[in-house]
Amino acid sequence: MSLKIRLARRGTKKRPFYAIVVADARSPRDGRFIEKLGTYNPMLGKDQKRHDVDVEKAKAWLSKGAQPTDRVARFFDAEGLMTREARSNPEKAKPGRKAVERAAARAEKAGAAAPAEG
C-alpha cells in the first residue's frame, strides 16, 4: 500500500480550504484518509502563514515511507522537514506553433510596410 501526503479539499464553493492528510494513493482526493497532519488556507494573504503542519506527525509519516505531493513538499520545505529542488521547464515557456506563425506574419507585414514608406 503506497501512502501519499496530499491535500483534501474542505472548503465551500469559491472558498477553498484544504486539509493536509495521509491517505492511500488509490483513495479519492476528498475520500477516506488515515490521519490529518495540518491545514492550508489559500485565501489568506501572502504576508500571512497559509499552512499549518504538525511537524512531529509529518516526520513520522515520512520515515514510514509516505510520499508528499509537490504542493505538500513545498510546505515541508518551508518547515525544514525536507529539501525540494526547484524545477524549471523552459519548454513550457516557449510560444506555441500558432503564436510563432502569427509573429512571423506580423514581422513579414511590418517588413513589407517599411520599404513602401521610404
Rank of each mutant, 00 (worst) to 15 (best):
M1H: 08
S2D: 15
L3E: 08
K4H: 15
K4Q: 15
K4S: 14
K4F: 13
I5Y: 04
I5R: 07
R6Q: 10
L7D: 02
L7T: 06
L7Q: 08
A8M: 12
G11T: 08
K13F: 10
R15Y: 11
R15V: 13
F17E: 00
F17D: 07
Y18D: 11
I20K: 00
V22P: 03
V22N: 03
A23E: 06
A23G: 05
A23H: 02
D24L: 12
D24A: 13
A25H: 10
S27M: 13
D30C: 03
D30K: 09
R32I: 08
F33P: 03
F33G: 04
F33K: 06
F33T: 02
E35N: 07
K36M: 15
L37W: 01
L37M: 09
L37F: 04
G38L: 11
T39C: 03
T39R: 09
T39L: 02
T39P: 02
Y40T: 10
N41G: 04
N41F: 01
N41I: 01
P42Y: 06
P42N: 06
M43K: 15
G45M: 02
G45L: 07
G45N: 11
K46Y: 10
K46Q: 12
D47S: 14
Q48P: 01
Q48S: 14
R50T: 07
H51Q: 11
H51S: 14
D52I: 12
D52L: 14
D52G: 09
E56T: 13
K57A: 14
K57W: 01
A58H: 05
A60M: 09
A60Q: 12
W61V: 02
W61P: 04
W61L: 03
W61M: 04
L62Y: 04
G65D: 08
A66F: 02
A66Q: 01
P68R: 10
T69E: 09
T69P: 09
R71G: 10
R71H: 13
V72G: 05
V72Q: 08
V72F: 08
V72P: 06
A73I: 08
A73T: 06
A73D: 08
F75L: 12
F75G: 01
F75C: 00
F76N: 04
F76Y: 13
F76S: 06
F76I: 00
F76T: 00
F76C: 04
D77S: 15
E79A: 13
G80N: 07
L81T: 00
M82Y: 03
M82E: 11
T83M: 12
S88A: 11
N89R: 12
P90S: 01
E91P: 00
K92N: 11
A93K: 12
K94N: 03
K94R: 13
P95G: 05
G96F: 00
R97G: 04
K98R: 15
A99H: 02
A99L: 06
A99V: 08
R102M: 07
R102D: 11
A103H: 05
A105H: 07
R106A: 14
A107G: 02
A107C: 00
E108V: 08
K109V: 00
K109D: 04
K109N: 02
A110F: 01
A110S: 03
G111N: 13
A112S: 10
A114K: 14
A116S: 10
A116F: 02
E117K: 14
E117R: 14
G118S: 11
